[in-house]
């Protein structure tokens, strides 16, 4: 009995330590954003890093005066939002076509899609850059949206989910007189909410933090997203960590809210599509 108790205690202690490791950066960021700028680095090594004696919102107001935060935020929302919405439509239709429709070359195409998954953006960034330059798309929203709409990973998630839906549902709809598109919209989509939620959240997360590509293809503040906004602080003397933390908090907050709102769907979607980790 006593032994069991000891095992439990040690498990909880290790879990607590692990949780601390993961939470510490976020806590430090939030606390740091609320401290006077001068104290952020000085107190970083002491207990005061997490228990400040003086709180202020000065850093937050600094963010708004030093850079056009609202512009960055709206840009990010527009870009990530568009990619999510259009991406859901495109990738779900593609996943459905791969999972359920018969067409010549389907398996070859699907193999190609799978292969695209392992090509990182960094590997094709330069040729892609030439391409969009030729198209005259630089410094626009489009250049930050279009290349990321079709997504091999999302297609695979949809594909796996649709494969698991009972085929009879579609056959019943066909006999009832629904065409392929109508079947997709009226029968498949309503029964695939979990996978739509999962793909939406994953895509949004991925795009919200996009840095390299926007840096390459944009030059002005007008169309740049949040990650480039935070980077602007490094080139905007004096270097104020409090402001950077405040910016960081405001950048992470929408994602946290989104996750909390859709948590139920997200967890179900992860279970249903069999993604792990």
């Amino acid at each position: 009995m006593r032994r069991r108790w000891l095992i439990n205690i040690s498990i909880y202690i290790s879990l607590l330590l692990l949780a601390l490791c993961f939470l510490a950066p976020i806590v430090l960021m939030v606390v740091g954003s609320l401290k006077p700028d001068a104290k952020v680095l000085i107190e970083a090594g002491s207990l005061k890093a997490v228990l400040p004696d003086q709180l202020s919102l000065q850093n937050y107001s600094d963010v708004f005066t030093r850079v056009d935060f609202m512009r960055y935020l709206l840009n990010s929302l527009l870009i990530s939002g568009s990619i999510v919405v259009v991406g859901l439509a495109v990738n779900s239709l593609a996943g459905y076509a791969f999972a359920r429709m018969q067409w010549r070359g389907r398996d070859l195409m699907f193999a190609l899609v799978l292969m695209i998954m392992i090509v990182p953006l960094e590997a094709i960034a330069v040729p892609l850059f030439y391409e969009v330059t030729l198209l005259g798309w630089r410094d626009t929203y489009i250049v930050q949206i279009v290349p990321f709409i079709a997504n091999a990973f999302s297609i695979c998630l949809f594909y796996t989910f649709f494969l698991g839906l009972p085929r009879e549902l579609e056959e019943a709809a066909r006999i009832d007189g629904a065409g392929v598109f109508r079947t997709f919209v009226s029968i498949i989509v309503p029964n695939a909410k979990p996978v739509f939620a999962t793909v939406a959240i994953l895509t949004f997360l991925m795009q919200w933090g996009a840095f390299l590509w926007p840096l390459m293809v944009t030059s002005g503040e007008a169309v740049r997203p949040l990650p480039l906004g935070i980077a602007a602080f490094y080139t905007l003397p004096p270097l104020q960590w409090g402001d950077i933390f405040a910016f960081g908090v405001m950048m992470v907050a929408p994602i946290l809210i989104l996750f909390l709102l859709f948590q139920r769907w997200f967890v179900r979607g992860v279970a249903a599509t069999g993604i792990k980790g």
């Binding site: 009972p166 009879e168 709809a173 006999i175 007189g177």
Partner: peptide, 30 residues
């Protein structure tokens, strides 16, 4: 001819009812 043009109706082994629709909406779908 397509399934619809043949004017046949089918009852499936596992019923294949549309799970997200009410009974009324299931029956009125065709």
């Amino acid at each position: 001819k397509t399934a619809q043009q043949r004017n046949v109706a089918m009852v499936f082994q596992n019923y294949a009812l549309y799970p997200h629709m009410t009974v009324r909406r299931n029956i009125e779908f065709p």
